[in-house]
Simulated assay, not measured.
Amino acid sequence: MFSYGSADVYRVEHADDCPCTCLGQFDCPVHRYLVSEGELTVVFHAETFEQLQEVTAALRDRFPSMDVQQLLQPPLSGTPEDRRFVNCGKLTDRQQEVLRTAYREGYFERPRAANATELAEQLGISQSTFAEHLTAAQRKLFGDVFDDC
């Protein structure tokens, strides 16, 4: 084990019945894995869509209860350290609605094309509720962006 910035990094040897071993056979690097409440979440990188299909088929053969939760295409520019996955699933439906509306209406442009009062009225909520939803959504998304920085 060693510390890498604000995170501790562990080296783990995997058994033959581990999804990471299967991914290694396809030369798919594992980005991260997380065990929580008896479930294993594995985030990995496939070089091509065809490789992704092969890996998924192999994982399903070995682990019939496997479920694909999300397919992401990372940004193709920047260094590997610059690339981040942002999990929009962390947002509540209302946070997504507020964030999408703010983005679509130009709230984040300079100069702003819409202000918080207008957007809150459009959404049928108070300005303070708009601000709370927007701040909560940004905090969750920025957590993914800056987690490893």
Rank of each mutant, 00 (worst) to 15 (best):
D93R: 11
V68R: 09
V98L: 05
T79I: 04
V42C: 07
G124V: 09
L99V: 06
D16W: 08
G106L: 05
R104W: 11
S77A: 07
Q138Y: 00
V86K: 08
F130D: 02
A102Q: 02
R139A: 15
D61Y: 05
A114Y: 05
A15L: 14
V145R: 09
P64E: 04
L59R: 02
Q127W: 00
D8W: 06
T117H: 13
Q138R: 10
D17H: 11
F63D: 02
G89C: 00
K140Q: 12
T56C: 04
L52E: 01
P74E: 08
A136T: 04
T129A: 15
L141R: 03
E47D: 13
P74R: 05
F44W: 05
A113R: 15
T92F: 04
D67Y: 06
H133S: 11
K90P: 03
A136P: 00
D17I: 04
F146C: 11
C20A: 12
R110K: 12
L119D: 03
V86H: 03
R110N: 12
A114F: 05
Q70G: 02
L72A: 10
V42K: 03
H31S: 03
L119P: 00
A131Q: 10
V68L: 15
P29W: 01
V68C: 07
T48I: 08
N87S: 07
K90V: 02
G24N: 04
G143L: 10
A7T: 15
A46W: 05
A114I: 05
Q96G: 08
D27W: 08
Y4P: 00
E132V: 11
E97N: 10
Q73F: 08
S3V: 14
V43Q: 01
D16R: 09
V30S: 01
R32K: 09
E13V: 14
R110Y: 14
F44R: 06
L76T: 10
P80T: 09
L72E: 02
C28V: 01
T56Y: 05
Q25R: 15
I125F: 13
T135V: 11
P74A: 02
L119C: 08
C22N: 01
A113L: 14
E39H: 13
T129Q: 09
I125D: 14
A46M: 06
E37Y: 11
T21Q: 08
L134M: 11
R94Q: 13
A131P: 03
A58C: 07
E118A: 13
E54K: 09
D148P: 00
L72K: 06
Y107A: 10
V35K: 11
E97P: 03
F146A: 13
T135W: 01
H133R: 07
L141Q: 05
F142H: 08
S6H: 12
T101S: 14
Y4W: 05
L91C: 06
A137T: 01
A46Q: 03
L91H: 10
Q51I: 01
M1A: 13
R32P: 02
F26L: 01
T101K: 01
L40Q: 02
E47Q: 13
N87Q: 09
R32Q: 04
E50G: 13
C149R: 09
S77C: 00
Q25S: 09
L123H: 01
D67I: 12
Q25D: 12
A15R: 14
V55S: 03
Q122I: 02
V43S: 00
T41S: 03
